[in-house]
Design a binder for these strands. Structure first.
Length: 203
DNA sequence: ACGCGGATGGCCT
DNA sequence: GGCCATCCGCGTA
């Protein structure tokens, strides 16, 4: 069941403003070639982090060991550890050295549902497998091992072109979970994911 | 349906 | 020492 897979999105896709990339990543497919099999999902929620001038961005602190790959070339995976328990994955945008990225916040599961369910615990609804940045990394097995990999097709973690989402299906609002620049409208989500059973992307 | 707080660890002041 | 780009379970309604 990989009917939505296309070619990997190229570096040029990411070499743009983070807000544009965040908008256009809706509908694309995040795919991990895991030892347990191919795990993938359609991106239905993203947030843009613009760079050191964005008070909510990790890149405000400059290029430290943690934020190192956020300053990498466009199309790099920036994976960080948060709250002592969770991993979150970003796609780096803009030119190398800029420090902007798009956080992937939710997926509609496409492939590898059994493995995802095992990793996310028993008796969970399909819609709760990947509806959060920490949840989707747990489901797809994304960890520090993926920090700095290229998402453009040369590694086990790739973003593939998918079904484009028309403007009237895109909701834009403030980012969540932050304490600075709380009203900047940089969160993008799909109003109605066409994969069945996935209401409630409201997070 | 909500709101709240505990878990848990790396990193910066 | 305190702050996190979070998640889950438990409380009250």
């Amino acid at each position: 069941m990989r009917e939505h897979e296309g070619a990997p999105l190229p570096s040029s896709f990411y070499l743009r403003d983070a807000a544009l990339v965040a908008r256009d990543l809706l509908g694309a497919v995040l795919q991990h070639e895991d030892v347990a099999g191919t795990l993938s999902g359609r991106i239905v929620e993203t947030e843009a982090y613009l760079g050191p001038h964005d008070p909510a961005s990790h890149s405000v602190v400059g290029r430290t060991a943690r934020t190192w790959h956020m300053f990498g070339p466009p199309g790099t995976a920036y994976v960080y550890f948060i709250y002592g328990m969770h991993w979150c994955v970003n796609a780096v945008t803009g030119a190398e050295g800029v420090g902007s990225a798009v956080l992937i916040r939710a997926l509609t599961p496409l492939s590898g549902l059994e493995v995802m369910r095992q990793r996310r615990g028993t008796a969970r609804r399909l819609s709760s497998l990947c509806d959060g940045p920490g949840k989707l990394c747990a489901a797809l097995g994304i960890t520090r091992a993926h920090d700095g990999l290229l998402l453009t097709g040369s590694s086990s973690l790739t973003i593939l072109a998918g079904t484009p989402v028309p403007d009237d299906e895109v909701l834009i609002g403030p980012r969540v979970g932050i304490s600075k620049a709380v009203d900047w409208p940089l969160r993008f989500r799909v109003r109605s994911p066409h994969a069945s059973g996935d209401q409630r992307v409201t997070r």
